[in-house]
């Protein structure tokens, strides 16, 4: 049954996901245009057919970043609304009378929504990398091979490691971990907040949003406190993992349990 739930969840979300990816592609193209005009202008190349866009150079950069934020926020909002709609509005009458367990419902939704969040996150990385590459090639248009580029990057990392005293491999590992787990943690946190909103009698969606904000703030505070405690105790440098990540993980576990509690014990669809 979990497989079927995942299949139907995917079916009902993939259109919106593809729309987000399309938006990312357009945003990246716009960013590329603005980068290009920015750096061409620096190089004094005026024969560029896109030269007329130079005046927008700085402006479009700002828009690029803003649009990126919009697409990410849009994805999160869509996922939240989709969850709310299928769980706690009229559609919930179907969702919660299917012959499946509460865990199966939650897990299918977390997997599919988390996966889409991850895909959008990865496209954001891709967008950055594309723009960075285009910037590099704009600055030094004389032939530079990919191997040389990677070699240069490697030297840069080694220099930075020496300068800032950190382990690049460990950073990369934790970054990959956060990229893989982060989207699911975000999803669980969002779902937990929306589910908590169900416990009040009025303005449940609004309360869900407020809970989400409150949870984010609380997580920040706890992270800062723990970090402060760790550094004063001289433990900070010995910590293997990012404190924030552990707090996130812990919060996600608690919020999952709360979501399950709400749908199995406290469900009360209007």
């Amino acid at each position: 049954m979990l497989g079927k739930l995942i299949k139907h969840e995917w079916k009902s979300m993939y259109k919106m996901g593809c729309l987000m990816l399309g938006a990312m592609a357009i945003v990246t193209f716009l960013g590329w245009l603005s980068f290009r005009s920015l750096f061409r202008a620096m190089n004094g190349d005026t024969l560029d057919p896109f030269g007329w866009m130079d005046i927008f150079g700085g402006f479009t950069m700002m828009i690029y970043v803003m649009l990126l934020v919009c697409v990410s926020a849009g994805t999160i909002i869509y996922i939240g609304v989709h969850f709310y709609r299928t769980m706690y509005t009229d559609e919930g009458y179907l969702t919660h009378t299917l012959p499946v367990t509460g865990h199966q419902i939650l897990i299918s939704k977390i997997l599919v929504s988390g996966l889409w969040t991850m895909i959008v996150l990865l496209t954001i990385y891709a967008s950055f990398i594309l723009l960075a590459l285009s910037a590099i090639f704009s600055l030094e248009p004389i032939d530079i091979s990919f191997a040389e580029l990677m070699d240069g990057l490697g030297r840069l990392v080694v220099e930075m490691e020496a300068m800032l005293d950190f382990d690049a491999m460990r950073l990369l590992a934790s970054w990959i971990l956060i990229t893989l787990a982060g989207p699911f943690i975000t999803t669980v946190t969002l779902f937990g907040a929306i589910s908590l909103g169900q416990l009040v009698s009025r303005g449940r969606l609004l309360m869900g949003v407020l809970f989400y904000v409150a949870i984010m703030v609380a997580k920040q505070l706890v992270t800062i406190m723990l970090k402060g405690f760790a550094s004063s105790a001289g433990m900070y440098l010995n910590m293997n993992f990012n404190v924030g990540f552990i707090v996130d993980l812990f919060a996600a576990a608690v919020l999952y349990a709360l979501s399950y509690f709400v749908i199995s014990r406290k469900l009360n669809l209007i």
């Binding site: 299928t86 009229d90 559609e91 009458y93 179907l94 009378t97």
Partner: peptide
């Protein structure tokens, strides 16, 4: 159990 609620529950 086959349930028909008093509302539209289809997307």
């Amino acid at each position: 159990v086959s349930y028909l609620p008093d509302r539209t529950y289809l997307s």
